[in-house]
């Protein structure tokens, strides 16, 4: 281990070992909670918009063009630029300057994957479902969604990754979250804090991933995931 690496390990020990970092408004628990709240709120809002829209467009086939536009627009959006722009427009008095860009970032991934999931269901299966006498709504709810669920969850997971990673920008607006450690730390050249903050953000993202993998195990039918215990 080189001297530089040793120094960084010491930074981490310094950051995580400091009791002052574990309490108060600047403490890890509170920052973590803030980060979690932004992330969950942004994901929930994005899902609320994108899932019904994706299901509807995928099921009816109407408005498919919208999907293409949304997907391309999303790739072109600079998140930081958007945050700054919205802060300029709305000020920093509310949470919207953070939430709007995060939601805007998350919607396309969910929308496109939900749409693709529903569209991608074997037309024979759709046909059989109607042929059995299921209504349009029942076909969607009882057949298309369960079969498309892996893709819908993938969309949510991709959105979550982006949100968690980008939620750090919330710090620019003075709204807190784990990004504060990076910004505040950089401002005063407090590298242990910068490093500690980045490690926390990475761990947070990994935890979110893990949650989604678990959710997939629970929610997706073994008949769809083809993961069945040998009996």
């Amino acid at each position: 281990m080189g001297a530089g690496e040793e120094e960084r390990v010491n930074w981490l020990i310094e950051f995580f070992g400091d009791p002052a970092n574990w309490s108060g408004p600047d403490g890890i628990p509170l920052r973590l909670l803030e980060h979690l709240l932004f992330s969950v709120a942004a994901l929930a809002l994005a899902a609320l918009v994108a899932i019904p829209l994706g299901l509807w467009i995928g099921h009816t086939g109407r408005g498919s063009l919208f999907i293409v536009v949304a997907a391309n627009l999303a790739r072109a959006l600079p998140t930081l630029g958007l945050v700054v722009l919205i802060v300029m427009l709305l000020g920093t008095a509310s949470v919207w300057p953070v939430l709007i860009p995060l939601v805007a970032l998350a919607v396309p991934a969910i929308l496109v994957n939900t749409f693709e999931g529903i569209r991608g269901v074997d037309p024979e299966l759709r046909d059989a479902a109607y042929g059995m006498g299921l209504s349009g709504r029942q076909v969607l709810g009882r057949v298309l969604v369960p079969v498309a669920l892996p893709l819908i969850l993938l969309g949510l997971r991709l959105a979550a990754i982006q949100i968690v990673a980008t939620a750090a920008v919330a710090a620019y607006t003075g709204l807190g979250g784990l990004g504060r450690y990076i910004i505040d730390g950089l401002a005063i050249r407090d590298y242990p804090t910068v490093l500690g903050g980045s490690v926390l953000i990475v761990l947070f993202a990994l935890a979110a991933q893990f949650l989604f993998v678990m959710a997939e195990r629970v929610a997706v039918s073994p008949g769809v995931s083809r993961r069945v215990k040998v009996r």
Binding site: D122, E124, A128, Y130, G131, V143, P146, V147, G223
Partner: peptide
């Protein structure tokens, strides 16, 4: 249609079974 179809059995080439159900 749904009412009509529930009273008529329908079998297609690829069976069209629901993959998520036993």
């Amino acid at each position: 249609p749904p009412t009509l179809r529930r009273g008529i059995g329908y079998v297609i080439q690829q069976a069209g079974l629901f993959p998520h159900r036993t």
